[in-house]
Design a protein around this nucleic acid. Structure first.
Length: 255
DNA sequence: GTTACTGTGGCTATTACCTCA
DNA sequence: TTTGAGGTAATAGCCACAGTA
């Protein structure tokens, strides 16, 4: 398996049951449960618009047509849309977002907007291309791209945000895999060294050699490429020969 | 120069919709 | 036809930082 293949690494990491991704946080805020979305409360208090949405393609078409027919709103407001499903229909509620152009517009739309849309292949491809160029956009770029893709700026913003998160997650997985492999290598190396130490000790007691008497076994290391043991006098000022590793902590380079 | 306030954008965690096996 | 899993758009809340009064 190629370590540069992130897909392989990802699969391996997952198959190994490694916890990947930012799943923990030190922030106390994230430890307490968030207030659940309560659309019914909102319905009573704020009287948001209420729409029974069709869960069919017909609805998607309607929403898309509506979406396309309206001009691109001003950039980046954090509108809040809440929804819940009933067995028969998806009820979409919009909370008022003070100062939000989008919210105002949505009210004009009578709240009949899908909570979540699926980006087309073309839209995804274009977003992906832009992401390759820059992982974040300034407001002008965002606005232009949104217009080009016939999306709201907020949607472009969210896409980039999620994309960055995905990239980071993948990178974390790769790092995790690399660390795991390092750990495995070091463990194996450690085992070999321990075994070697045992052999040295037994040799020293059975057939004392001046060479072995002078060399503390702990200063020896295996060359990872040729698997040969090399050694010299500990504490010697002489430059180490190729394949000789005095520090057992440091990972030796191959000969 | 310092402080308080505000707006903006990014990040993380989570939710919920949608697709597919 | 149903269902569970996975992918991902969307949301919520926090933080950092810059601009300003």
């Amino acid at each position: 398996m190629d370590i540069n293949n992130s897909q392989d690494i990802r699969e391996t990491a997952l198959s190994l049951g490694l916890g990947v991704g930012p799943t923990t946080t030190t922030s106390a805020e994230h430890l307490r449960p968030r207030e659940p979305c309560s659309p019914l409360t909102n319905l009573a208090s704020d009287q948001p618009s209420l729409a029974l949405s069709l869960s069919t393609d017909a609805y998607a078409e309607t929403a898309k047509a509506k979406e396309e027919s309206r001009p691109a709103p001003a950039s980046s407001s954090r509108s809040a849309v809440s929804s819940f499903s009933s067995p028969h229909a998806t009820i979409v509620l919009r909370e008022k977002d003070v100062g939000s152009d989008e919210a105002e517009e949505d009210e004009e739309d009578n709240g009949c907007v899908r909570k979540k849309l699926r980006l087309t292949k073309e839209q995804s491809a274009m977003l992906e291309n832009r992401f390759k160029e820059h992982t974040s956009l300034n407001p002008k770029q965002k606005q232009a791209l949104a217009k080009q893709l016939n999306l709201r700026p907020r949607q472009v913003e969210v896409w980039f945000q999620n994309r960055r998160a995905r990239t980071k997650l993948k990178q974390t997985e790769v790092d995790c895999e690399i660390l795991r492999r390092c750990y495995e290598k070091l463990t194996a190396e450690n085992q070999r060294l321990r075994k070697e130490l045992q052999e040295m000790k037994s040799l020293r007691f059975s057939a004392p050699s001046p060479l072995y008497m002078q060399i503390p076994a702990a200063t020896l290391a295996l060359c990872p490429s040729c698997q040969r043991i090399n050694g010299s006098e500990a504490g010697s000022d002489a430059a180490p020969k190729p394949g000789l590793f005095l520090n057992p902590i440091t990972r030796p380079a191959p000969c």
